[in-house]
């Protein structure tokens, strides 16, 4: 079943269109940076973007920073919202279930498919970022590759830090996906599930910025989203990254549990 879901994912035009659009924005930004040579002032604009001019090797990280706040969660929420509700809306859910595919198995396969999509999207953005960064912005410019602390980064350093960043952002997005996946088992409308997931994110973002919500702040899903920046500090600050990974794991476990409890005994009327 997992194989079937992955094949469905890969053969679906929408998968590639959405990933293509995700990759397009960093490319456009890179083109403007390369043509005009005007970098945002440090401390303004997306993190790390200031450092990429003339230094394309940092661009994968900057590219992910560009799509992380907005486009990536939308793409992932839409994908996850599709998972069960999309099958229901297309009328294929009932045929899968009478094939028969166990409901729990279907859910697991959907989860794997969503995780695969997320990783695919994040890796695609990082790879596009690398290619555009190196070709458009060059690798030897006026700025050397440094950490936020100003120490030099070797290519190997940069590679593993970017790798961990890809995994971390990927896992954060799986947290997003689990919200929409749960909603997707509640409703037959994929759009509602996706928007519901985004609504949770927006609420979380608002609460994180609110000092009055300090008591619950550390448990909100978006609290540690930007912790990937810590990977580019020297020494790497693992604390928030670990906390972020744990918080996301908590959400994934609880929401998937709820999705399972709901879906396994729910009437399928569509």
């Amino acid at each position: 079943m997992i194989g079937v879901e992955l094949r469905k994912l890969l053969r679906r035009p929408r998968t590639w269109v959405s990933i293509g659009l995700l990759c397009l924005l960093p490319v456009v930004v890179a083109v403007f940076l390369a043509v005009t040579g005007i970098a945002p002032r440090p401390g303004q604009g997306p993190t790390l973007l200031a450092a990429v001019l003339g230094n394309g090797a940092l661009y994968p990280a900057a590219a992910l920073g560009i799509v992380l706040p907005f486009f990536l969660p939308i793409a992932v929420a839409v994908q996850a919202g599709e998972a069960v509700a999309g099958e229901a809306a297309a009328g294929t859910l009932r045929y899968l279930l009478v094939r028969p595919v166990g409901r729990t198995r279907l859910l697991v396969a959907k989860l794997v498919s969503v995780i695969a999509y997320t990783l695919l999207a994040v890796v695609a953005v990082a790879a596009t970022g690398y290619v555009t960064g190196v070709t458009l912005l060059g690798t030897s410019g006026q700025l050397a590759t440094t950490t936020l602390a100003g120490t030099a980064l070797t290519p190997a350093d940069l590679a593993w830090r970017t790798g961990v960043m890809v995994l971390y952002i990927g896992w954060s997005m799986v947290g997003v996906a689990s919200v929409s996946l749960f909603l997707s088992t509640l409703t037959d409308s994929p759009l509602a599930a996706a928007l519901g997931g985004l609504a949770v994110l927006v609420s979380s973002t608002v609460l994180v910025a609110l000092d009055a919500a300090g008591a619950v702040r550390d448990y909100l899903p978006t609290r540690y989203w930007l912790a990937w920046v810590d990977l580019f500090r020297d020494p790497v600050a693992w604390q928030d990254i670990q906390a972020g990974a744990l918080v996301q794991t908590g959400y994934v476990v609880v929401l998937l549990g709820a999705a399972w409890a709901n879906f396994a005994t729910r009437d399928v009327t569509n």
Partner: peptide, 8 residues
């Protein structure tokens, strides 16, 4: 030790 960033 403070960094020795070449471009600072």
């Amino acid at each position: 030790t403070p960094p020795a960033a070449p471009t600072a």
